[in-house]
């Protein structure tokens, strides 16, 4: 393995790589989302039977569940980059964490919004203090806290590190917070959401859901790399390579 990872860890060399990856991710995203939407709307039954009948509104699942999964996954990704940044002191890792955060916050909001629109026809209410919805709300607050702390500190180095530490503390607290919301009474845990088990889902629905999930994932890659390029340009505006880049006038 002669690959030198630290070579790619410099903003100067990653900027053009990200630029080339963004269009590729967009193409995959469009294909996956198109496939997921087509399959979700045209290859699935309109009504689901069983003990808890779901009508057409269950189709919100194709964005609700992927958005909720991505919101949690992106938080882990963000903390991962933040931790790498703190340990190895690499600038690019902090920038990655910063680039991921807004996309994660958007997916968290979407999970809440679509949850409300699903809750209204199936539970009869837009909002319920259901453990998972409440946990998602707390996750949204954690994202907002990270973004707010970072933007409140002018010194970039301090902002990066402070926000990274906050994100790590947040991740450690997340299981405890979720547990306390899920089991307000330590003797028994409440759950309005049905226990989910992927193997019980109809194959067509599962396929559409997974296609949408991977579509959202590649979407997150595309948008975070776009944001990352902006952050790199802003922070490195004084360096020689940025000047060369603007001189040659690259289009990417």
């Amino acid at each position: 393995m002669a690959l030198n990872w630290f070579k790619f860890a410099s903003p100067a060399s990653f900027y053009p790589i990200a630029g080339r990856l963004v269009p590729a991710f967009w193409i995959i995203t469009l294909i996956l989302l198109g496939l997921g939407l087509y399959w979700g709307f045209f290859e699935t039954a309109d009504r689901l039977g069983g003990s808890n009948a779901q009508k057409e509104y269950y189709r919100i699942i194709f964005i609700h569940v992927p958005a909720a999964w991505m919101s949690m996954w992106l938080y882990v990704v963000m903390v991962g980059w933040a931790a790498i940044g703190l340990v190895f002191n690499t600038r690019l890792s902090f920038m990655m964490a910063n680039a991921v955060a807004p996309t994660g916050a958007i997916f968290t909001f979407l999970a809440l919004w679509t949850g409300a629109f699903w809750g209204r026809p199936s539970w009869g209410t837009y909002w319920d203090w259901d453990p998972r919805l409440t946990s998602e709300l707390v996750l949204f607050f954690l994202y907002i806290g990270y973004i707010a702390l970072h933007s409140a500190i002018d010194d970039v180095r301090r902002a990066d590190r402070a926000a990274a530490l906050l994100a790590i503390v947040g991740l450690i607290m997340v299981p405890v917070i979720f547990w306390s919301i899920n089991c307000p009474d330590p003797n028994q845990c409440a759950a309005l959401h049905q226990r989910s088990d992927l193997t019980q889902i109809d194959a067509n629905i599962l396929f559409a859901m997974l296609a949408m999930t991977f579509g959202f994932w590649t979407y997150s890659f595309a948008t975070s790399f776009m944001r990352l390029r902006g952050i790199i340009l802003q922070r490195e505006s004084e360096s020689a390579w940025v000047r060369d880049l603007l001189d040659t006038g690259d289009k990417a």
């Binding site: 607050f141 806290g145 707010a148 702390l149 409140a152 500190i153 530490l165 607290m173 917070i177 919301i181």
Partner: peptide
């Protein structure tokens, strides 16, 4: 400690810390 010396630190502190107080 994270918000030390920031302008508007008090309101920011609330945003950061209150979710952690939930348990």
């Amino acid at each position: 400690a994270l918000t030390l010396g920031l302008r508007g630190g008090g309101i920011l502190l609330a945003l950061l810390i209150l979710p952690l107080y939930i348990p």
